[in-house]
Amino acid sequence: MEDKKRLEEFEARIQRGEKIEPKDWMPERYRKQLIRMISQHAHSEVVGMLPEGNWITRAPSLRRKLVLLAKVQDEAGHGLYLYSAAETLGVDRQELIEQLLEGKAKYSNIFNYPTLTWADIGVIGWLVDGAAIVNQTMLAKSSYGPYSRAMIRICKEENFHKRQGYEIVATMAKGTPEQKKMVQDAVNRWWWPSLMMFGPHDTDSPNSGELLRWKVKTKTNDELRQRFVNLTVPQAHAVGLTIPDPDLKYNPETGNWEFGEIDWDEFWRVIKGDGPCNRERMRARRKAHEEGAWVREAAAAYAAKHGMKSRVA
């Protein structure tokens, strides 16, 4: 069959809302875009374990410790689901991880910011997971079957992440003066990076058109960002927190909370590697990977030596 005809059929399937499965014909561009997007998403989950993991041993109660540990563990699990989804497109996890460790792959900018106080754990759960959920709810409708299924599972599991974050924020916001100061400071630091999580303006997003046409994404960056702001501002006000944006105002006609301009210089700088923690996060990932090499090798050697049912591959 001609590629042109195949492409038409492929796009017609997408228009009908059918899911594309791993063995189905797909344009090379679609495959490449998906590998790029899914692996970036997987890397983000894995790198995202670091800033929050930083507070597990210092959680202020045993209950908070269990919840945080379970949440960071979920992120490892979600990274795993996503790498698996990417692997259905014909890449090895090994290769994707190498791309990350060699600095060739991107991951969400947000994890290049530091967690300085316990309030950051609450605010990350509330804002960062909140933004992720807005994004992921949309991706659960993605046209690629394995990605969509991974997202449905992830959305279900992440339901508690945002709630636990907001619970910490609300508790601190009605706590002692020091706690109030801590939580407002965390909101001030995380608000703008959270808005950046949705990516550049639609007009500056080179991949957006194609991704929307192929229903890998079903909403634009700016639509999702607006939805996030509309959901979040009332939540901040409900616990007496201030959003660090002097331009923020409610538009009763559109029902939108209009907000100020994002510092796009900062956005692009951090993406290109010049954020507060880029180098540190990569160093931590590389260290874990390198120090784990002898373990992975030993297990493989043991399996080979004992002729275990692993050598089918």
């Binding site: 670091l50 993991g53 597990i56 540990l69 490892a76 795993l80 260290k287 874990a288 784990g292």
Partner: peptide, 16 residues
């Protein structure tokens, strides 16, 4: 303390 620093993703989950 291992969380996020394990030798492979699966083991991170097991240790947690």
């Amino acid at each position: 303390e291992w969380c996020g620093h394990g030798p492979i993703l699966e083991e991170d989950i097991a240790l947690s």
